[in-house]
Computed example of a mutant assay.
Amino acid sequence: MAYSVDSISDNCYEGTTCLINKYNIRDESKLAELEAMITLAITSEMEQVALKDGFNENDYKAIHRQLFDTLYTWAGEYRTIDISKKGTAFAKHDEIPELLMNCFKRLKAMDFFRGLPFDDFIDEIVDIYCTTNYIHPFREGNGRTQRVFLSQLIHYNGYEIHFSKIDTDELMLGTIHAAHGVVDYLRDIFKEHIKPTLR
């Protein structure tokens, strides 16, 4: 989904909103198809991996790099411009490093949510989802990076989630509502789809 940006100043081919890529594809729809194909298999594999430790900004950047390195030279690097989507303005680009550092510092201080009662765990997952969505650190691929990271964090706590089973329109609607301060929809989605890991 296209962001509101100045395409000339944001690593796009001149006069287009198509991101400069390693395949030199200049058609945005064709690039989107290739991007989806490449990242789907990687995402499916990464979502089921339980990290033993980590969950910090370097890990977050590494997830993005692994997902998009075959497509973009800037994979794993923070965006250098300000962006918005569907009326939602994301964090200013120069605030990204500090905001992410504080986000993951809090996560570590809370022992990565280990041992929380289920309802409290859901609240924290919603909170970190909303926080990382607001920060939106990358030029493209934020949602996929976020889903891999959250899947790993959820798995680490003895639960699982399969984002492929969540209606994308429903998740988008919940995300938009949450960006405007209403998290009930998002909370219901996570509560329904986060289940104990079957052993």
Score class of each variant (00 low, 15 high):
Asn21Ala: 00
Glu140Val: 07
Gly143Trp: 01
Ile83Met: 15
Ala91Cys: 07
Glu124Gln: 15
Asp127Gly: 07
Ile128Phe: 11
Ile42Cys: 01
Ile125Gly: 05
Glu28Ala: 14
Gly54Thr: 03
Leu71Cys: 04
Ala36Tyr: 08
Lys22Gln: 14
Thr39Ser: 14
His193Glu: 02
Ser44Gln: 15
Lys52Phe: 01
Asp94Leu: 10
Ile194Ala: 06
Glu160Gly: 14
Glu140Trp: 03
Ala178Thr: 02
Glu35Val: 07
Leu198Val: 13
Asp111Arg: 08
Thr80Cys: 03
Glu57Ser: 09
Lys61Ser: 06
Asp119Lys: 12
Thr80Val: 10
Arg187Pro: 08
His177Arg: 11
Asp94Val: 06
Glu47Ser: 11
Pro137Ala: 03
Tyr3Asp: 13
Glu45Ala: 11
Ile154Met: 03
Phe163Asp: 02
Tyr159Leu: 02
Arg144Gln: 04
Leu107Val: 00
Glu98Asp: 09
Cys130Gln: 09
Gly87Lys: 12
Met1Gln: 11
Arg139His: 05
Gly158Asn: 13
His162Lys: 13
Thr70Phe: 10
Ser4Lys: 08
Leu186Tyr: 00
Lys195Ser: 14
His136Gly: 00
Asp69Phe: 10
Ser44Phe: 06
His155Ser: 09
Thr39His: 10
Phe149Gln: 01
Thr168Pro: 15
Met110Cys: 07
Arg139Val: 01
Asp167Tyr: 03
His177Tyr: 13
Val126Thr: 11
His162Pro: 00
Cys12His: 04
Ile42Met: 06
Val5Thr: 09
Lys92Ser: 12
Asp59His: 13
Glu170Lys: 05
Val49Tyr: 10
Leu186Met: 13
Tyr159Thr: 04
Lys30Cys: 10
Arg106Glu: 11
Ser164Arg: 10
Ile125Arg: 07
Thr175Gln: 04
Gln66Gly: 07
Glu28Asp: 09
Glu14Leu: 10
Asp69Thr: 12
Glu77Tyr: 08
Ser84Met: 05
Ala50Met: 14
His136Ile: 00
Val5Leu: 12
Arg139Trp: 00
Glu35Asp: 12
Glu160Met: 14
Ala32Gln: 07
Glu124Ile: 00
Gly115Tyr: 07
Gln146Asp: 10
Ile83Ser: 14
Glu160Asn: 11
Val183Gln: 12
Phe149Thr: 05
Gly158Leu: 01
Ile125His: 05
Gln146Met: 08
Leu171Ser: 04
Met172Tyr: 14
Val183His: 15
Glu192Phe: 01
Asn24Phe: 00
Tyr3Arg: 01
Val182Met: 06
Lys108Arg: 07
Ser44Leu: 13
Ala50Asn: 08
Ile81Leu: 12
Met172Leu: 15
Trp74Ile: 00
Pro196Asn: 06
Ile81Val: 14
Lys108Glu: 15
Ile38His: 12
Leu67Ser: 07
Arg199Trp: 03
Asp169Ile: 02
Gln146Ser: 11
Leu107Tyr: 02
Pro97Arg: 02
Gln152Phe: 02
Ile176Gly: 03
Gly115Arg: 08
Pro97Thr: 06
Ile83Cys: 14
Ser9Val: 05
Glu33Lys: 09
Thr132Val: 09
Asp119Thr: 07
Lys85Met: 02
Met172Cys: 12
Ile8Leu: 10
Gly143Thr: 06
Met46Ser: 05
Phe138Asp: 09
Tyr3Val: 00
Ile122Tyr: 06
Lys191Val: 06
Phe104Cys: 02
Arg114Leu: 08
Lys191Trp: 05
Lys92Pro: 09
